[in-house]
Write a protein that binds this DNA or RNA. Sequence first.
DNA 1: TGGTGAACATACCGATTCGTATGTACCATA
DNA 2: TATGGTACATACGAATCGGTATGTTCACCA
Lengths: 211, 211
Amino acid sequence: MTAKLSEIHTARSVSRDPDKTRSLILDAAFQAIHRQGYQGMRLDDVVAATGLTKGALYHHFPNKQALGYAVVDEVIRGIIEQVWLQPLEASTDPLAEIIYFVGHMDALFGARIVTFGCPVNNLAQEMSPLDEGFRTRLDKLYQEWRTGIQHAIERARASGAVRSEIDAQKVASFVIAALAGCIGIAKNAQSLEQLKTCADGLIGYLESLRT
Amino acid sequence: MTAKLSEIHTARSVSRDPDKTRSLILDAAFQAIHRQGYQGMRLDDVVAATGLTKGALYHHFPNKQALGYAVVDEVIRGIIEQVWLQPLEASTDPLAEIIYFVGHMDALFGARIVTFGCPVNNLAQEMSPLDEGFRTRLDKLYQEWRTGIQHAIERARASGAVRSEIDAQKVASFVIAALAGCIGIAKNAQSLEQLKTCADGLIGYLESLRT
DNA sequence: TGGTGAACATACCGATTCGTATGTACCATA
DNA sequence: TATGGTACATACGAATCGGTATGTTCACCA
């Protein structure tokens, strides 16, 4: 492997690359939050995980709260868009796509989904009653997520795949809630089988929407 | 109001009543956990809320963890039994009872259900990946809860109220998960309307089980 | 090429908070 | 009625952890 030109032009990347450093911290913070929650996340652990020091962290983020907000706005939002919104928008059979997602979460996310749960729901349950900044950010995320699913269902309805009398917004709300609930139950049971059992119920509901 | 004989015989109750003191602490701890989570609960706050001192708390509980466990085993379990299991067992129309619960959570629990969420699910999401003791205790609680709903559905099935081919255990799993999810979404949105929208979806699912 | 600011590193402070050590009042019992 | 144990109160220890103050290195540019 020879160095690409772009790498030569960004040779400083090796010693100094603030953008990379920032995303490194964000990623470590995301993982720590996913595992231990926001309150359980320790800045010292994040720093240690990156191999950096506290000086670097506080150079890029004014405090723990701002780091937490950035994780929501950048990392978690990116995951939602990449895993849910973009595939749904690109799909020609949106309902089938949703059903596939629900039925293959272990394949999509790995064992983490059972071990640590859904990052969005985790943070929402922990922080929304404690910190209004987290709540509004996560609420926006949920709205985008819900809107994406809603549009998918509307498209499925327009194509005749689902019954015409269903309320796409209500269904989207319920699907997200049920999904978060299933993952939560499976997380507490630490059981992938429990996840499948529960997801089967949701799939049954989704199938019942078909014409 | 004159003092009852029992009160005379337990006159020491006023100055010394360890059982009452213990449940006083448990109740204050439950409320603090419900509001701020287990990690967010401060023993000083619990002590202040009871009007007691730290000496009293550590006389009845060896440490914070034991207090948390006792809240699960005694307070939360009691609520589940009182609100869900007993009414379900006594009901002559279990499916209608479940639907009624889902549709009237605000009346049953007050605004707390939207403001602070479901105590069981809150604790499960926060603590199950961090503390095996919490996880197993909450898992047991979920199992009892699920079994209660399962039996209710089996009775409904036996009476011909729901379709004969449905899997009562799967349905019970999904109902609890969906319910927890709905409350969680509503909590994050801080919206009773969101709760009703979401609960409507669950009710629609439950109605679809009917013969 | 030297200086200026960004990008980090190092060392430390201070507040929060769980837990403990010790003291005291009350009550049952011998 | 003396006494020992239960049921608390009070004061303090100690560690964790977010945050800061200060030092140092690097890159860019006049």
